[in-house]
Design a protein around this nucleic acid. Structure first.
Length: 690
DNA sequence: CATTTATAAATTTTT
DNA sequence: TTTATAAATG
């Protein structure tokens, strides 16, 4: 039975949708209907008789997967069981089924990057590497996690990674190696997997005789979205999954590769035809999203890239305004201008929801958020500070994970220290006494604590002594654990509730604005109500966390109109009628931290390209002239910024240049025009005081 | 001796 | 906003 909606696709899209067997590489420029094509492909396969559960659709984010499946469903009747999601979420499911063949306990728990960093830090302290020596500090935990992740994901030797991306850590390579050794050993011993492990285990699974074929044969078709942002391990996984069957479609755009920092490599796209013999290459170059002036400006940004990109997108959308570059005096004027323009667009009939403000780094929108709140303009921020990163949420997840996986050193370490009177060393002592953590590797002291009982039983039956101040709370923690471990175990929501009650007493001492935090945990409790098992709840919270409290169903804001604020990275794959891009200053874009080599600068350039090509009809770039030195206290010391190097003089005719009022006035003030030559900068001086 | 409190310093993007 | 060190406290 042919797929019915085929007439809605152009020729190239149709080739992709109706492609038969064998490998396909789809090069899909920005706004060329990539999502629609992928969804159509899935619908076509199902209509052609492929059982949905034999299709695996790998996407970059969970949001992308949900959107794709929603659209695919619109084309057919039954798509409920397509395996869709991120690489990480997919392998999580696979490992619960097949992990045992790798010697992996299927009850493993997963830690995110922040947890990984915390574990690194734990080891760093153990090894005595956390101290400052000769005014030099050992790399921080986030740096360590970043080095490790890049090393694994690009499968590059540590020396090379340090040399090319973390040159300031070169001298510490021996100690870094020691930390990594311990890190992997402890994870292994404790049944804990980090994000990178998930991918490695998938690859290992593919390489295992028997299990490898079994897993690969689950799927008739594998489709991968955003292939330009996959890393070496992911490419190896794909190869491993397609050793015998070669039905595979990858979709991507080399001009939109923006995840190099995560080990992604453009070689995956370039080498795909070599890796899979007989690959058909399809190019989608017809843009349906943006007006011509917006595309012109975007194409010219890319034209200066060191590595040339073959395609120049063309659009059918004639007419339209040139993008504007709005020069502002400083960041606060930028915030006011953005608000003014957003509201002006709304007057013209564009909903707030169809507009977005994009920026390089999460904190770039801080001032704007204040201004938006002041003017009562509702907004939702993507990719900023996340729900899951809040300390009190981490506390809750640590407690749940400790119950689920009592060997998990990291969680015990966190939970125990919540109690007044228990700090790092008492926590360590307790953990050693019940047989958690480092003791596992240290046969001497472990032998003393090792009597075959689990840490939880030991805690219940022979509790270690604690300082007097901690006794009461320690007792109540033990009773929480007992309640949650009862048989049958209470449902996840009840466990969350029980833990929350314990934390409520503790939070007043630890944090301020306790009420807000407790409310967050109440929402978490509601979320837990949708889960039958604690394991599933924990995994979802780690692999697919609610991006903010607004993500919870039933939030009144959901139905309202609100402006989107997003980092450029998180805006990937999205589109809006009007797009506002903040901080077009050199040093922000490209980021000062990413100008080390040409490859890094090029990635920043692609980042700007991605941001600009999100716009359908209106594109506004904002450029603050002045940047004040960050620091506390009142200081008006500032530097003057340069417009981003990605828009050089010869390209200025692609934009409409405007100057915000205060900036214009300052410009006048800097060229004295009064008769007596007195600078008329009084107003400007006063203004700077605000 | 261990914990808590206070103070000074630091750099981005995310599954 | 987090994080290492020093001083204060139990």
């Amino acid at each position: 039975m042919p797929y019915s909606g085929i007439e809605q696709f152009n020729t190239a899209q149709r080739r992709a949708v109706t492609h038969g067997d064998g490998p396909v590489l789809v090069i899909a420029g920005a706004g060329t209907g990539k999502t629609k094509t992928l969804a159509g492909r899935v619908a076509h396969l199902i209509a052609g008789g492929v059982p949905p559960q034999r299709i695996c659709l790998l996407t970059f984010t969970r949001r992308a997967a949900a959107e794709l499946l929603r659209r695919a469903e619109a084309g057919t009747s039954a798509t409920g069981h397509v395996w869709g999601g991120t690489f990480h979420a997919t392998v999580n499911r696979l490992l619960r089924l097949h992990g045992r063949t790798l010697g992996l306990d299927p009850d493993f728990t997963v830690i995110d990057q922040a947890d990984a960093a915390d574990l690194m830090n734990l080891i760093r302290v153990d090894l005595g590497l956390s101290k400052t020596v000769n005014a030099r500090r050992f790399p921080g935990k986030d740096t360590l996690a970043a080095i490790y992740s890049r090393m694994v994901n690009s499968r590059t030797r540590i020396d090379l990674v340090l040399e090319s991306h973390f040159p300031w850590c070169r001298d510490d390579s021996d100690d870094i190696r020691k930390i990594f050794e311990q890190y992997t050993a402890r994870k292994r011993a404790q049944g804990v997997l980090d994000y990178d492990d998930l991918l490695l285990y998938w690859k290992a699974l593919c390489d295992t005789t028997g299990a490898g074929e079994l897993v690969a044969d689950r799927f008739d078709h594998i489709l991968v979205d955003e292939y330009q942002d996959t890393n070496t391990v992911q490419a190896e996984i794909l190869a491993g999954m397609r050793r015998t069957r070669n039905n595979v479609m990858v979709v991507g755009d080399d001009a939109q590769a923006i995840y190099g920092f995560r080990g992604a490599t453009i070689n995956n796209i370039l080498d795909f035809p070599d890796q899979f013999k007989g690959t058909e290459i399809i190019r989608l170059e017809q843009n349906y999203r943006s007006t011509q002036p917006i595309l012109d400006a975007s194409n010219r940004v890319m034209a200066h890239a060191a590595r040339r990109h073959e395609k120049q997108l063309v659009t059918l959308r004639r007419g339209g305004e040139r993008p504007t570059i709005m020069t502002c005096l400083d960041e606060s004027e930028q915030s006011r201008e953005v608000c003014d323009r957003v509201l002006a667009h709304r007057e013209e009939g564009l909903q707030l929801k169809s507009q977005a403000v994009l920026f390089r780094a999460g904190h770039n929108s801080d001032q704007l958020e204040v201004e938006l709140s002041r003017r009562n303009i509702p907004f939702v921020k993507y990719g900023g500070l996340k729900f899951i990163e809040a300390a009190h949420v981490k506390d809750m997840i640590a407690a749940l994970r400790m119950l689920e996986n009592p060997a998990d050193e990291l969680s015990w370490h966190r939970v125990l220290q919540v109690i007044e009177g228990i700090g790092p060393s008492t926590a360590r002592r307790i953990m050693a006494a019940i047989g958690v953590g480092k003791a596992e590797n240290d046969d001497q002291s472990f032998a003393a604590a090792s009597d075959g009982r689990s840490p939880l039983r030991r805690l219940a039956e022979s509790p270690p002594s604690v300082p007097p101040a901690a006794r009461e709370q320690f007792k109540s923690l033990r009773s929480v654990i007992a309640d949650c471990m009862g048989t049958p175990a209470p449902p996840p929501a009840s466990q969350v509730q029980r833990i929350r009650q314990f934390y409520e007493k503790v939070f007043t001492r630890l944090y301020d604005n306790t009420t807000v935090r407790v409310r967050d945990l109440e929402q978490l409790e509601q979320l837990a109500g949708r889960y039958a098992s604690r394991a599933e709840l924990i995994t979802d919270l780690t692999l697919d966390p609610p991006s903010s409290t607004q993500d919870f169903a039933g939030d009144p804001l959901r139905d309202d109109d609100y402006l989107i604020l997003s980092t450029i990275h998180s805006a990937k794959g999205c589109e809006w009628d009007a797009v506002h891009i903040l901080h077009m200053a050199d040093g922000v874009i490209p980021s000062d931290m990413a100008t080390g080599n040409e490859a890094q600068v090029d990635e920043e350039r692609r980042l700007l390209y991605v941001a600009m090509t999100r716009a359908r009809t209106a594109l506004h770039l904002y450029f603050p002239l002045r940047y004040y030195y960050a620091g506390r206290g009142m200081t008006d010391r500032h530097t003057y910024a340069q417009l981003t190097r990605f828009i050089p003089k010869p390209d200025h005719d692609a934009y409409d240049h405007q100057t915000a009022s205060a900036a214009a006035q300052t410009r006048e003030a800097e060229t004295p025009t009064t008769a007596d030559g007195t600078p008329l900068a009084v107003d400007a001086i006063l203004r700077e005081l605000w």
